[in-house]
Write a protein that binds this DNA or RNA. Structure first.
Length: 529
DNA sequence: CTAGGGTTAG
């Protein structure tokens, strides 16, 4: 390190007096050494001082470093100042923009690159395909594919894997298989992406066939299959596959546990987590804990949640924003609002989701005033509320009977650039109807910019039950039955209840059922039997 | 000098 510093000083000293060129390799090594030692600032200084004699690879390396650290502003700055750019410069920028989740910019820059007369290479094609992949961009994927063919790049495994992803995003099975056949030397990644494509399109058996046929497999292959089974809701196959895996790591366990969470098998998820911990084979990661906390929250397993919390602390695991937010949610959903608030207060860094969890927690506990206060603090701290914030806030008002406050917040949503969605209207209908302002609720429904859905009619119906308003209740019930084609299962429930005319206790029952459906909650049950 | 595939929060 000292040697590096002295050589930097040496270089600086000479440059102020004379002009001579340092070999590119030396400069690159010097800058690189500084970067390795975290001396980004120093590296930049050397870079700036030799600006006039820099080799293009040095420029590219500088961009790459910024990109890798997520400093896109700096990367852009260097990129803009380059006297001349090559394909590597562009590719590095594409990767940065992609990491920054800015596909439009990737496309914009690509057009600019083409205008400058440079030809794309494999990496370029891959980056562009990823940027234009998605529903409704069929033409672009096909065009990039055409371009790749014209440049003779479509046969490579690298470009091929991107094209496979592109056709998967178009849900084009034929295209997927055609591209795969075109790849000259198929490597393990090509096969993995093919399997992923089959699984995403729902062709589980084709995925299995490819898995059997492929010449070599790695752990990602196994994970691709596992995730494929889970997303196709083949939980038995997934578990069977998981049990047969020759090697397992944290990722494998987490995927399996999270799979059970996704299909609402919370107890099984927690049992598997326990198995993982007791086997001492792999240490849970942030991902694992996050999934497990979700399972605790959804099954109101407060004791288990507390155990997980202390596990996180004992392991000295950095409690990041995501994990803390999971903890808040877990505590709030399993009834310990004090603990939720404690975690929230201890967070050094918060984001919108953390605030939402906290406000949602207050709502759940009927603490409308606290929710409103927390919302005020959120805005004062400069955090931007989003759709979810207002759903939570309005439902807090509804639960606490704060009609005027709720109406006020509903009106103020636009000031934050948020337009009211169905969920917000549902909260408002619930709020007004519960408070007995049934006419107002009805008028709100009529004035909505969309058709009322099951939840909205349900809220109204329930309140009609509360306030013994048969007439409007009939309207709501009819509204629900009109939706029967969309919600056959819900209609069944309704018919069962509606058979007993005038029995509003049953309507309350229905309303409870509907609320449960909306909240996607499992029956409250404890981890400790 | 750039390097493709697998998972988290409301």
């Amino acid at each position: 390190m000292r040697m590096l510093e002295s050589s930097a000083t040496f270089l600086r000293g000479h440059f102020s007096r004379r002009i001579f060129t340092i070999p590119t390799a030396t400069l690159n090594r010097l800058i690189n050494d500084h970067l390795r030692d975290n001396g980004l600032v120093e590296a930049r200084r050397i870079f700036n001082q030799n600006r006039t004699s820099l080799d293009i690879s040095t420029w590219n390396m500088m961009i790459s470093v910024y990109v890798q650290r997520g400093l896109m502003l700096e990367a852009h700055q260097v990129f803009d100042q380059m006297p001349v750019r090559d394909v590597v410069s562009w590719n590095t920028m594409f990767m940065g923009l992609k990491k920054n989740k800015d596909p439009e910019s990737v496309l914009r820059h690509f057009i600019e690159m083409r205008r400058s007369g440079l030809n794309p290479d494999e990496l370029t094609i891959a980056a562009i395909i990823d940027a234009v992949s998605g529903p409704g961009s069929k033409v672009l994927v096909l065009q990039i594919h055409t371009l790749a063919i014209r440049l003779g790049l479509s046969l490579s495994a690298y470009t091929g894997s991107a094209l496979l992803r592109g056709y998967t995003s178009l849900r084009d099975l034929r295209g997927l298989e055609r591209v795969f056949k075109e790849i000259l030397l198929k490597d393990v990644v090509s096969w993995n992406v093919l399997i992923m494509g089959y699984m995403k399109l729902g062709f589980v058996e084709d995925g299995e066939r490819a898995f059997a046929e492929m010449p070599e497999r790695n752990i990602v292959t196994w994970h691709t299959m596992l995730i494929g089974y889970i997303n196709n809701m083949e939980m038995d196959k997934a578990r069977d596959f998981f049990d047969k895996m020759s090697q397992r790591n944290v990722f494998s366990w987490t995927v399996m546990i999270n799979g059970y969470v996704q299909c609402r098998e919370f107890k099984v998820a927690l049992l598997l987590f326990r198995e993982m911990v007791e086997s001492w084979s792999n240490r849970p990661s942030h991902y694992t804990f996050s999934s497990v906390l979700k399972a605790c929250a959804a099954s109101s397993s407060l004791l288990m949640g507390r155990q997980v919390h202390s596990m996180i602390s004992k392991r000295g695991m950095a409690c990041d924003v995501v994990l803390s937010t999971s903890l808040i949610d877990m505590y709030a959903k399993s009834g310990d609002i004090t603990a939720a608030s404690g975690v929230f207060k201890s967070m050094p860094v918060k984001n919108t989701a953390s605030w939402n969890s906290m406000i949602g927690g207050f709502a759940r506990h009927g603490l409308g005033v606290e929710a409103l206060e927390e919302f005020e603090r959120m805005v004062q701290c400069g955090y931007k509320p989003d759709q979810v914030t207002f759903i939570n806030l309005l439902s807090a008002c509804a639960h606490a009977g704060l009609v005027e406050e709720g109406e006020k917040q509903f009106m103020l949503m636009g000031r934050f650039g948020i337009t009211a969605e169905k969920e917000h209207y549902a909260c408002m209908v619930d709020l007004l109807a519960r408070a007995g302002q049934l006419d107002k609720a009805e008028r709100l429904i009529k004035g909505m910019p969309f058709e009322p859905d099951f939840v909205i009619w349900g809220a109204l119906l329930g309140a009609c039950g509360l306030h013994s308003c048969l007439e409007l209740g009939e309207v709501a019930a009819k509204g629900i039955s009109r939706l029967r084609r969309e919600h056959p299962a819900a209609y069944d429930v309704l018919c069962r209840v509606h058979g007993e005319k005038g029995d509003w206790t049953s309507v309350m029952e229905l309303r409870r059922l509907m609320r449960k459906t909306k909240a996607k909650k499992q029956d409250a049950s404890s981890w400790i039997e």
